[in-house]
Amino acid sequence: MTVGLVIVSHSQRLAEGVAEFAGQMARGEVTIIAAGGTDTGELGTSMAKVQRALEAADSGDGVLALIDLGSALLTVSMAIEQLSEERRARVRLSGGPLVEGAFVAAVEASVGSDLAQVAATADDAATMDKGVSDQ
């Protein structure tokens, strides 16, 4: 099994797009669940939706949640508090960038790395070199 990812954004389409983009690198070996938008699909975040995603992405090896900003942090923090103590111990909240963080975390998880390693890789994405200075 591998570490699962949950993508939390105010926009349902953004979360789905990030999950799609990161999933391409994981070759189906990583569970990546989008939890964007409100329950009715509007811009915003939903604790119930995030909580369901955190539970669904957890295969026993843990879950890394990536967020955009603002209320996403409050919503995910609250959703994590609602989990059983056992599940809660296997969830990490990433401060890494949403797109790049999800991308490298998916790769890291797909090779079977543990949660701490996947989380560290997502954090490092904040300073990843995209090669812009070489152009």
Binding site: T38, M47, S71, T75
Partner: peptide, 15 residues
């Protein structure tokens, strides 16, 4: 409120 408001007010008023 935490699952219907959508913005930061959801978790804040919800809490």
């Amino acid at each position: 409120l935490v699952s219907t408001v959508g913005g930061a007010s959801g978790p804040l008023y919800g809490t």
